[in-house]
């Protein structure tokens, strides 16, 4: 199992609290349009993810993150840099 594949289910656990009832999550789930995250929720999501993976997420990466898969890739890179 690649590091990315390990990260993804952990990320889904975090994202579940932002999803609507019964909404399924996949790598293609769009954080803004599918989960309806506003700027406050995005910041909350970043904080939870930082705690879970013991990383600091630069604000600069936000424009490059559209889907859950994108986010997992960024987390993968940040955990490798530690």
């Amino acid at each position: 199992m690649t590091r990315y594949e390990e990260i993804l289910p952990q990320l889904y656990e975090i994202l579940r609290s932002y999803a609507k009832d019964g909404q399924s999550l996949s790598e293609d789930t769009e954080l803004l349009s599918d989960l309806g995250l506003d700027s406050m929720k995005v910041m909350q999501l970043l904080l939870e993810t930082e705690e879970r993976f013991d990383i600091s997420i630069p604000l600069n990466i936000i424009p490059n993150v559209r889907t859950a898969g994108d986010f997992a890739r960024q987390i993968e890179q940040l955990t490798e840099q530690r």
């Binding site: 910041m43 970043l46 904080l47 013991d54 990383i55 600091s56 997420i57 630069p58 604000l59 600069n60 530690r82």
Partner: peptide, 21 residues
Amino acid sequence: EVIRFHHNDPGDLNKRLRRLG
């Protein structure tokens, strides 16, 4: 690279400085 830390929280800043190596 821009990283936020929790408002008025030296403990959180400490953690983030440590992560920077």
